[in-house]
Amino acid sequence: MEGDSKVVESKPHLGIPEAVFVEDVAKYLKEQGSCTCEEALKKLEENYQKYKLMEVNLLQKKQRLKQQIPDLKSSLDIVKHMKSIEGTDTTMTTNFFLSGALHAKAKIPPTKEVCLWLGANVMLSYSIEEALGVLNKNYTTAISHLDSVNKDLEYLRDQFTTTEVMLARLYNWNVKQRRAAKATTNGSD
């Protein structure tokens, strides 16, 4: 084995630091300077907690996106439907949502305009074509965000799996070291 510690190929993922893989535990500890095995374990444990914290953040972000996407999709569906009857004389008879479980009936003739809720109490009127464009764009952006969050999560998983394994190995090494020490003292008795 050539190097003592190698870096798994790194890419910037929200600046999440890379967990370094260590092949030789004894060498690693020496490189860390004077610190004892317990201290090294503590440090790793800290890193591990940090990774977990980042995971929680990312998972929340993902959850938000996952809620947003169906919303956009349903807006898109309805605008698409409006587009499909544009220019015809089909009147949409709808039961639309008022509040809670209450729906009211409405007849909607084909229109050329649709208002999109932009948030912050602002609603903007678009032509159907434009509305489709806006919604499509938002939809694809949301999907690509979700994609990158998923990639970051995968990367993060790599990092904390590496840390998990490292923790286990360091722990084992520590146990072994102590056992060996005990054996030598017993032997000298």
Binding site: S74, S75, D77, I78, H81, M92, T93, T94, N95, F96, F97, H103
Partner: peptide, 13 residues
């Protein structure tokens, strides 16, 4: 004749 079908947030017949 008229079945409300849910599209987005509204039902369309």
């Amino acid at each position: 004749e008229a079945i409300p079908y849910q599209l987005g947030e509204v039902f369309i017949q």
